[in-house]
Design a protein around this nucleic acid. Structure first.
Lengths: 337, 337
DNA sequence: AACACCATTGCACACGTGTGCAATGATTGT
DNA sequence: ACAATCATTGCACACGTGTGCAATGGTGTT
């Protein structure tokens, strides 16, 4: 059984399908009473317009594509929540696509979005396979990148102010009296890692501290990598009194490694994260970090897209400030140096 | 500029659009050489078929709707990852819809999915607003519920074996020597909460232990609620030696409350969770829990849907076993009673 | 040579909706 | 009373793709 169409309604209402179409779209070109009757019938028959048929003629799908590396990443999930929320308010649907950092899937994803004729695309892939960006570029569709920059002119972006936030966070550690501060980065972090490191470096420089090479290590942005990198840091003869981690996930691993080494946080070592994931409140001790307003960033990305869809093509590169969240994982170093 | 259509290709190839359509669908009804030429042209012109136009005639959209309460819930995210992965393999796209436990949004979501003519729907809303289920029921579309049952005949389901897993988990505590075990539930948990409690109860009964009413409290399934409920448990004169929490999130809050009370886990109190979220490995101490294979459950739900789409309408109610994961948050009680 | 058969192609319609234009009848103004 | 205006409606086409059927021309068979 096909779903009921406007033709079915037209038949019962003794009018043409044109009139039904107009009536349901609240066009003033229809007699008020017939319109009411038509709406009554439509409701009674459980009519739902066919988005496919409409989009065929309007050349819009009212659908946007959201590409993430994996939705299992809490950051991506937070962002997508914001996107979806705002999209819903604007009458847009969200087509979700996980790229899984797999080149083959990335291409398939792009192909799908193209066939689906999405009106716009938001890409939230921290470790974006640069491979498929050119593919996206071919499509004549507005694209907004989230926490990911691209040199080309084709894409707009919403980014967290990595450098500024990192500088503030490192400043907090320095303010507590730390002098031996390590940077535990993400070797897949690309620009984000570079920018956070830059902020970190600036704070040290501003305080006249020297950056020691052996105090710069890299994980993979996840607990496993943070754990392993932290363990390496602790091997050395002199250990840092504080560790600045690329993100909360890395910090989680670092906390574990420190615990395993029989040291205490923050008494022996202070630890900071980045993101302020939900779990950062519940680590032991609760994690000092920088809050990325994920939901708001998602909304912002969507609203940027809306502007672009409305025809306003001015280049947009929004920068969202992070918020310093000070919790129990940072404190003054135990002993003066 | 419109995207190129098969008509454009037809013009350049000096054939009718029918031939192009056939060629691109690898129909044997086309001369091999012309087909090759057409494909060459299509590729050169960057042709992408219009999913909307096709679905209009095929009456299929190759799209499924996935309804979650909020994608920011790590469990939902894990499930959706599995769904998306499998959907992709089957050539299906995923339309994501957050219901946000908001009745108004739920209705809008259903409406959207209906207009989009999704081929099927998967609902992963632990706290499902029973409100819109009848709405879904109206649609003539296969529906798979995940970790959520519904009496009606219309829906199929994939569920974790709550009772069995809970019984095993509670059995683990009893085996360690615990006799005073509290249940920290989720007042919004509905069937899930009821079933986990049932498993818990069975284990106690089997061991000849009495269930004390004051040892049964309820949170909200999140750290905040777990924290508050645990605090209540600790107020009493005699406190339990172990707490069985509805899920990992609740356990997170419980851990915090215990720490705030100056007690240690597992020395003073053992704690268990449920779900085995990523973070369960990184709590202090790491959490004993039951693993729900979220990704696999997502895949399973999708594959069930595929079966239904293929026309096989036999009622399916899959039950997935949970896996007991024993970590550091449980140990034998300190002193004998 | 007449016939049947086959490969290939185009015609025409369908899917469900939106809309410019013309047609119709009614209302208003002078 | 006549013309001009207005409200309402239907016609016909468009959007892009898929497919049953007929048409065409060629090949092989008897």
């Amino acid at each position: 059984m096909r779903p009921t169409s406007i033709k079915d309604i037209a038949r019962l209402a003794n009018v043409s399908h044109s009139t039904v179409s107009r009536a349901l779209r609240d066009s003033p070109l229809v007699n008020h009473e017939t319109a009411a009757e038509i709406r009554r019938l439509a409701d009674k028959m459980g009519y739902r317009l066919s988005a496919a048929a409409r989009s065929l003629v309007t050349q819009r799908t009212d659908t946007i594509g959201v590409v993430v590396t994996t939705i299992a990443d809490p950051f991506a999930a937070g962002v997508v929540e914001g996107i979806e929320e705002a999209a819903n308010e604007h009458g847009l649907s969200v087509l979700l696509a996980n790229s899984n950092a797999d080149p083959e899937r990335e291409l398939r994803v792009v192909r799908t979005l193209e066939e689906r004729r999405v009106d716009g695309i938001i890409v939230t892939a921290s470790r974006v396979g640069a491979l498929y960006i050119p593919e996206l570029e071919r499509m004549q569709v507005p694209i907004v990148l989230l926490n990911n920059q691209h040199p080309g002119e084709f894409a707009h972006s919403v980014m967290i102010a990595n450098t500024e936030a990192s500088e503030a966070l490192a400043g907090h550690l320095i303010g507590l009296g730390h002098r031996q501060i390590a940077y535990l980065g993400d070797r897949f972090g690309r620009e984000s890692d570079a920018e956070r490191f830059e902020g970190f470096r600036r704070a040290l420089t501003a305080a006249g501290l020297k950056l020691e090479k052996r105090f710069v290590v890299h994980g993979d942005g996840r607990p496993e990598g943070g754990h392993e990198a932290m363990a390496r840091l602790l091997e050395g003869p002199r250990r840092p009194t504080a560790v600045f981690c690329y993100n909360d996930m890395s910090a989680l691993g670092a906390l574990l490694a420190i615990r395993e080494a029989g040291l205490r946080v923050p008494a022996d070592i202070s630890v900071t994260g980045f993101d302020d994931l939900y779990l950062a409140q519940y680590t032991e001790p609760p994690l000092t970090t920088v809050r990325q307003p994920m939901r708001r960033m998602g909304r912002l990305a969507l609203e940027t897209l809306i502007q672009l869809l409305a025809g306003d093509r001015t280049k947009r590169n929004l920068k969202v400030p992070g918020e310093l969240i000070i919790r129990g994982s940072t404190a003054a170093p135990q002993r003066k140096l």
